[in-house]
Amino acid sequence: MKQVGLYFGTFNPIHIGHLAIANHMVEFSELDEVWFVITPQSPFKTKQSLLDNNHRYQMVFEAVQFYPKLKPSKIEFDLPQPNYTVNTLVHLEEQFGKDHEFALIMGEDNLKSFHKWKNYETILENHSIYCYPRISQGVVEHQFMEHPKIERIDAPIMEISSTFIRKAIKQGKNVRPLLPDAVWKYMDEMNFYR
């Protein structure tokens, strides 16, 4: 049974922080693979500055091409929008459940609001959560601190955000070191975020 960690996000754009966390998860936990699940539209975010789904998929594809344990996933592209994680998990179980076991990967800051997620109890009943630290939140106290299905992974703390990268590009700043080289080239050729 393959253990797959699902790393959800808009990845608008994917950056070295995302890669470092995903790679750490796959190398230093029970996970065999990490799938970057590109979210078409988060129920909590507006769609204004979101690049087209296929462009964001292409950037994730470019970013992970030399990491055999990391995969891009467009599983949510064909699901009704706005979509919820619980629906994606059901869909993945139907499609891959015979030989894959799915866990969620999330930052500690997301864990704090996890009780607001649709059917969060069902998610916790059926899936583990691998949680990585976030420094900007300080110590996060929440109801899931001691939950047996939640495993804390001491991943590197990466305080880089896609929002910061988009704003910096718009201001003409050089943020190339924050992006995988292939992603930078793709964004540059496509003239994104300027």
Rank of each mutant, 00 (worst) to 15 (best):
P72R: 12
W184L: 05
H91A: 14
I16N: 12
N174E: 13
Y130G: 03
E141N: 06
H18K: 09
Q65N: 12
I14R: 02
M158Q: 14
S49E: 14
F11G: 03
A182K: 15
E121Q: 14
V183E: 04
I75N: 05
F102R: 06
H18A: 08
I160D: 11
N119G: 10
N12E: 01
K71I: 11
K167S: 15
V26S: 07
V90Y: 07
E141H: 15
K71W: 13
S128G: 08
L92T: 06
I21A: 01
Y67E: 11
M145V: 14
E30W: 03
F144W: 11
V139G: 05
L70C: 12
E159M: 05
Y57C: 00
E94F: 03
N87L: 10
N110M: 12
H24F: 13
P13E: 03
I75C: 00
E62A: 14
E101F: 05
A168G: 01
F102N: 04
W117A: 07
I129M: 08
K69Y: 11
N87A: 06
G5C: 03
N87M: 07
A182S: 15
K74I: 08
K47N: 11
V183W: 01
G172E: 12
F11S: 00
Q143M: 12
I169G: 00
E62V: 02
E159I: 02
S73R: 06
P177E: 07
E121F: 00
W184D: 06
F28E: 10
T163H: 13
I21N: 01
F28D: 12
Y67T: 03
A168I: 11
M1N: 10
D99Q: 13
C131E: 09
M145T: 08
H100I: 02
I135Q: 11
D109C: 12
M187R: 05
E159Y: 03
D188R: 08
R152L: 13
G9N: 07
V37I: 15
Y120K: 06
